[in-house]
């Protein structure tokens, strides 16, 4: 992609685990040490130290599954919301633009934890939605605003000439957006979306306050009955670490593939 005449300005959204870059040797080594170190320590605790670590590892896996469900569900929904918001933010229609901007401003001004509480219990008041879905919606609404800014920046990073060329061929704005601008913008926003995914994976632990039995909640349940707080949170931290490092690596590889594929 870097060879394209239409070179895109990279979007810098600094959040989440750093996606390892092969060019950054120091970071790459750190990734290896952290990832394999965390796996080694986990295995040692589970099988070498046994009690209560083995019990904890047995207790939490369904929580990992819930964490995944919330994360993947929320990132998909947030991407859709983000795309619509991003398009709204660059719309010439004053009403649509205003609505999208208002949404972004409101969401960015409220702490994530407060929003999650608010959306979850607000949803509960007015519509009957199961808890897991409510949690996913709450996360997605929060992240949708940030994703909207990612998409807006991504779309605006595509040179103006692309839209003009498409229009001059007789395409409508919608056709030009779908056929020309968005396919290019998606490649630009992929790295920031990857970052958002990692951030969301970590922030998904916040849904544990909604009594969604995610990884953190499972750990808290275990600890609150056995009082082995230190051991439990050690395990929970290790599992989160392995997951975020694994996914940041995976996203890094995906990006590399995508760039090389051109």
């Amino acid at each position: 992609m870097s060879k394209n005449p239409t070179s895109h300005t990279p979007i810098d959204v600094g959040d989440g685990a750093a996606i390892p870059n092969k060019n950054d040797a120091g970071l790459f080594t750190a990734w290896r040490i952290a990832f394999f170190g965390a796996i080694f320590v986990s295995l040692y605790l589970a099988f070498g130290k046994s009690d209560p670590y083995y019990e904890i590892f047995k207790f939490v896996p369904d929580g990992i599954l819930v964490t995944f469900k919330v994360t993947f569900g929320a990132i998909l929904l947030a991407t859709c919301i983000g795309l619509i918001t991003g398009l709204g933010r660059i719309s010439d229609n004053r009403f649509i633009n205003g609505a999208a901007s208002l949404y972004v401003e409101v969401i960015r001004g409220i702490p994530l934890l407060v929003q999650i509480f608010y959306i979850y219990y607000a949803l509960g008041r007015f519509v009957k939605i199961p808890d897991m879905l409510s949690a996913i919606i709450a996360m997605a609404v929060c992240y949708g605003a940030y994703m909207g800014e990612v998409f807006r920046a991504g779309i605006q990073s595509i040179p103006k000439g692309q839209m003009e060329a498409a229009l001059s061929l007789g395409m409508s704005r919608g056709q030009a957006m779908r056929q020309v601008i968005l396919p290019q913008a998606f490649k630009v926003v992929l790295p920031p979306i990857g970052n958002e995914f990692i951030a969301l994976l970590k922030d998904s632990s916040l849904v544990s306050i909604l009594a969604v039995s995610d990884l953190l909640r499972r750990g808290r349940e275990y600890a609150s009955e056995t009082f082995s707080y230190f051991e439990t949170y050690t395990v929970i931290a290790l599992i989160y670490l392995v997951m975020t490092l694994f996914f940041s690596k995976l996203i890094g590889i995906m990006e590399e593939r995508l760039n090389a594929g051109k």
Binding site: G124, R125, K128, D131, I209, A211, S213, R217
Partner: peptide, 19 residues
């Protein structure tokens, strides 16, 4: 079992029809 940080939240969730 669904566990809540506060018992009040459990009642609110029951009012919302989730439990």
């Amino acid at each position: 079992l669904k566990t809540y940080d506060e018992i009040g939240l459990a009642f609110e969730d029951m009012a919302a029809g989730r439990i």
